[in-house]
Design a protein around this nucleic acid. Structure first.
Lengths: 360, 360
DNA sequence: GATCGTCGTCGATGCGCATCGACGCTGACG
DNA sequence: CGTCAGCGTCGATGCGCATCGACGACGATC
């Protein structure tokens, strides 16, 4: 079926450019074209698409058929202009952290997929633009809402979020988050779960393979949050916690093991990173978690499963976080952004894989 | 300075919503507001911003001051509607490949940064949408051009790209790419460089640690491209090439080494993946590249540098590829998309790091 | 001093859609 | 058979900007 099919006494069809502007270009059909083909008015086409007024079944069919015939899709700019709604979600991504790249991709993908499922698109913003990037997309009316990832403890974007008219969801927990919509993984209960698991196994000493210093220095706030809760819980359970900050490569792991494995009973190990090198290093030393020592980890399930001895672990699920963020955001868009601001955390769950000796 | 400052006998300023639509909302200032404050007409404001007509210095200053005072930014939808230009680039990302996640992020970041530097934004599309995703953004006029990443040999998006009016740049080389704008890393000359390097060192046998089967099965076309050129070059140089496909984890690497390291002189090693585990495995066996055997790799410089013995390598630079793609795209947008379609490859360069024994 | 060209500015128009008020038409009910 | 209340559709309008034609002012030219 040709696109420039004309049913009524119309002007030139949408298939050709109006006027003599050089060669014939394909022009996208408009709702007026649809109306002409369906034999109704343009406003009726609009109401069929939005459902904001009752339309008879007969007319509906006529219009929908015309839409399909012309493969019509509404012009995003015109819709944004007239409807004050872009159907675009801004996503501010922290590129610099090559570290968490795979988690980041999973996060972004989930956002994109959920957005598309609700007929929205995703505009990719970089954290490098900072708060002015957020202000810009709002003033230009480029999106209806924004999700900003990896919010630091002191983050100017968090302050600006208060000024904006559009909904903003922050991934992370800034220092003063009253009046802000924040989502994050529950690192505090993760800390508690992991410490408890080792304490239950009878560990009195726990050596933590911590995040690298440079990462902590970025103000990534889940690190102190995890750390403080772990310390508090360890104190409650009568466990001595020892933090060992080192790099995460093989050499760093070796340093860590050298430092914590003296003579006598080895301490419980708590690994706060992808346990790849740790598993190999332990294997090389003939140490089997669950047999010779106790090991828990904070790592994704995927990472855990590929270990020589998959560790009992709590997995920060980027997909869960992004799904929660998107669900909330869509809710805010529907309700006109008057849902109370608060902090929503994704529940931490421990998966036991036998890297901890169970008493009894 | 209040935002609703009024210079002329105007109606209500832009600071408050018109009419009695409930509470007073902040409304973004329009070019008409700027015109009123500057004491000129709206069209003059437009011409100041676009520079498409000469404007006296005095008027320019008045307008620019008003723009700054109101923190005016043009409404993206209105601009797209009137100007037939969105200043948005679509980027279709292949999320599923968790494999190359870090390279993917680097690619996307570079796209975003270059786009912003030219006052463009980036709309993130998922490969899951397939060709219809491309058609959709064109018909809805959501972007001016698209970059589609990781194009397979037989890719429906490549076929659709021919039909589209807007410029499309494909990252990868589909089977029939006449009339398409394609960009990729030059895997063929990379193959040649790597084979030559080993041949020059006197290797008569080369064992290739290849890409995993499942990856090759996706139709990622650079694999056969690399493979064929490597085979051809090896034949020219009198080198016997032996492909060993295995997984890329530590176990797979061990299998590989077991398979290729018999008695006698070890073959040259060509590693087509992140050489992390390979370096550790060699180290454990007491084998030092550059002393006991010859090793070259196709891996990023970052990956190479963190090895126990950094290998001589060719690095596929995602940033170079994306920069080339963006440069070309902006050129296409300026020229009205009449630049001839062709295939542009990013030059492969070999970095010597002493993992190959140099004769003489 | 009249004419012409150029520069700088303005008013009007249209982009494609959503929305509002108006209105004709149908069926139910008195 | 007349009246009335929806239901379903239409025409008109405006969203904010880019662009076109028109035109006034000014200096140069004869």
């Amino acid at each position: 079926m040709r696109i420039d099919d004309d049913r009524l006494s119309g002007s030139s069809g949408p298939g050709a450019a109006r006027g003599a502007t050089g060669r014939t270009r394909r022009i996208a059909p408009t709702s007026k074209d649809v109306a002409r083909v369906a034999g109704v008015s343009q406003s009726t086409v609009s109401y069929v698409m939005s459902g904001k007024r009752p339309i008879s079944e007969r007319t509906r069919r006529l219009v929908l058929d015309a839409i399909e015939e012309l493969t019509y899709e509404p012009h995003a700019g015109a819709r944004a202009l007239a409807g004050r709604r872009t159907n675009v979600i801004g996503l501010m991504v922290p590129f610099h952290t090559a570290d968490a790249a795979s988690g980041l991709m999973a996060f972004a993908e989930e956002i994109a997929v959920v957005a598309r499922a609700h007929d929205h698109d995703v505009l990719m913003l970089t954290a490098a633009e900072g708060p002015s990037g957020l202000a810009r997309v709002e003033r230009r009316a480029m999106c209806d809402a924004v999700i900003a990832m990896e919010i630091a403890t002191e983050d100017p974007r968090a302050e600006l979020a208060r000024e904006l008219t559009m909904p903003v969801i922050l991934i992370g927990v800034p220092a003063r988050h009253e009046g802000l919509h924040c989502v994050d993984f529950d690192f505090e209960s993760a800390a508690q779960l992991l410490v408890d698991e080792l304490a239950d196994a009878g560990c009195r000493e726990v050596a933590v393979l911590g995040w690298a210093q440079e990462r902590a220095a970025l103000g990534i706030n889940y690190i102190p949050r995890f750390r403080e809760r772990a310390a508090a819980r360890a104190a409650e359970r009568g466990v001595r916690l020892r933090w060992v900050s080192t790099s995460h490569d093989r050499a760093g792991v070796e340093t860590y093991l050298d430092a914590v494995l003296g003579a006598g009973e080895p301490p419980g190990l708590l690994a706060l990173h992808s346990p790849h090198d740790l598993g190999a290093a332990l294997q090389q030393r003939g140490l089997v978690p669950g047999r010779d020592l106790d090991l828990v980890s904070l790592c994704t399930d995927d990472d855990a499963e590929v270990q020589p001895v998959p560790p009992t672990a709590v997995s920060p699920q980027p997909r869960d976080v992004s799904r929660l963020a998107m669900t909330w955001l869509l809710e805010l868009l529907d309700n006109g952004n008057d849902t109370p601001a608060e902090l929503r955390l994704v529940e931490a769950r421990l998966t036991r894989r036998g890297s901890v000796r169970r008493p009894g």
